[in-house]
Amino acid sequence: MIEFISQPWHWSISGAMISLVMLLLIYLGQKFGVSSSFQAMCSIGGAGSRFDYFNYDWKKHDWLLVFVLGSIIGGGIASTLLASPDPVQISAATINDLSALGITYPTTNAAGAGFLPLDVFNFEALKLLQGIILIVLGGFFIGFGTRYAGGCTSGHAITGLSNLQLPSLVAVIGFFIGGLVMTHLLFPIIFSL
């Protein structure tokens, strides 16, 4: 059984399981949307005394912070007990494109699980402009952008689209505009730094 679920899951199983997570949260009286956790954490940190956006009862998001804690534990379980036998199998075309940018892809589990490009995402990289852009500015954009848009992949792409929300469709179009511009126009510049 453990061996069976330790294999990478087919995309159809994965998609179904994500909708199950959404359904469970709805049944428990909440909704699926992870980026609100950033607002709650800023509020807990005292930002509510400075700006209205954080001046709300963060306890209404206490369930989300517990969910986030669970997802960290789930990541720990999945990376140990349920670890895949091989790194993520991505397409040869992507491996080629990325190697042209100077990013090596792990071919053995010892070299990495294929979750992060470890030659770019490490603490040493924070001494370089490239690392600061990808790690610090990238994170900044995630926080600023998701809260400006009012949701991320879970709140807009999964919950919003499946509830036929037009603002969510607009947001998802935005996600792709940003992602495509970054990947195709800006990555060649950033990775030449």
């Binding site: 379980i77 500015l137 600023f144």
Partner: peptide, 26 residues
């Protein structure tokens, strides 16, 4: 506008908010 800014960050870090937390667990 917010979606586009998030999209830039999604491509840079390769993660949206949910996966960020999960990766910490890894």
């Amino acid at each position: 506008f917010g979606g586009t800014i998030f999209g830039l960050g999604w491509a840079m870090t390769g993660a949206c908010p949910g996966p960020l937390y999960v990766l910490v667990g890894h």
